[in-house]
């Protein structure tokens, strides 16, 4: 896979720093600092692209204005053969989304499998990587599996929310309205994948949002941005030539707990039968 797929996907690779600059926030001194850096590195096209992005203001793009949620339908692809269990994704998610201690929005599981037995571990979700491990049986294969909210299309968590705080956006992300959630915990019970939790400070439901605040600005989720091996990929099913879309359409992909018919939108390549 092209390593550049981890960079924010915009029209020209040179524009990547500019969109990153626009995405980093509304602070004007920061904008100035970065636009100076852009001019130093040269490139009129970069300047124009950066200028138009910056000139549009760091004002957030609302649906109907610059960002139209009808034009996107996101999906996530994970290749378990590539994951090295470094935990960078878990750390990046925690930094990006202020995930509280003791909970995870994304995590990694290590599977050690033999003919007689199997062993799974995930120390703190894999946030500090994984320690060496001895198992009491002959292990024939071992691998890492990153997991997160699957943003299912027919999800039980939205079905059971009593106040409509949990919903699915038109571009495919399952979200929780933190101002509407009453903290009843029903969605936490209903999620078959264990991806939800009650936030200890806000006492409302919380989970992976596919970094909605990033993807709606043309960035990738933080976990995808930092993954060093290309295990995690984020794509748009409505975009022509999207590699994630291509893989889902043509390669052999698997989903978790398919028998529950939740229609998850996180697809796995090379998933082993031991993984639930």
């Amino acid at each position: 896979m092209d390593p550049k797929i981890d960079e924010p996907h915009v029209s020209a690779p040179e524009a990547a720093p500019a969109s990153a600059a626009a995405a980093t926030g509304p602070g004007s001194t920061r904008r100035d600092f970065l636009s100076l850096a852009i001019r130093l590195s040269g490139g009129a096209m970069v300047l124009v692209a950066g200028g138009s992005a910056l000139g549009g203001g760091a004002a957030p793009k609302a649906p109907g204005e610059a960002y139209d949620w009808e034009e996107h339908l996101y999906a996530y692809l994970i290749d378990t053969d590539k994951c090295i269990g470094c935990g960078s994704c878990v750390r990046a998610c925690k930094t990006e989304n202020q995930v509280p201690d003791g909970f995870v929005r994304t995590w990694i599981e290590r599977y050690v499998v033999g003919m007689e037995d199997s062993h799974v571990d995930s120390p703190n979700g894999g946030i500090d990587g994984f320690p060496p491990l001895q198992v009491g049986f002959i292990a024939t294969k071992s691998f890492f599996v990153p997991k997160m909210c699957n943003h299912c299309r027919a999800t039980p968590c939205i079905q059971v929310c009593p106040v409509g705080a949990s919903y699915r956006t038109k571009d495919g992300a399952v979200m929780v309205d933190g101002d509407r959630c009453i903290g009843c915990g029903y969605c936490v019970q209903a999620c078959p994948y264990g991806s939800r939790f009650i936030h200890p400070a806000t006492h409302t439901a919380s989970k992976c949002t596919w970094c909605y605040h990033r993807i709606t600005k043309g960035l990738k989720p933080a976990c995808v941005t930092v993954c060093p091996t290309g295990t995690r990929q984020f794509g748009d099913l409505k975009r022509e030539g999207d590699p994630v879309r291509h893989a889902i359409e043509h390669d052999h992909v698997a989903i978790m707990q398919g028998h529950l018919l939740t229609e998850p939108q996180c697809f796995y390549l090379h998933l082993d039968k031991e993984v639930r």
Binding site: P8, A16, P17, P63, Y67, A165, M175, H213, T225
Partner: peptide, 23 residues
């Protein structure tokens, strides 16, 4: 059956912390 205003709120929930190697 949800509060549509939240979609915009989620888009602006926070400033992205990671920018990618290009930045």
């Amino acid at each position: 059956p949800y509060r549509y205003d939240n979609v915009k709120e989620q888009m602006n929930a926070r400033t992205p912390a990671y920018a990618g190697a290009g930045a």
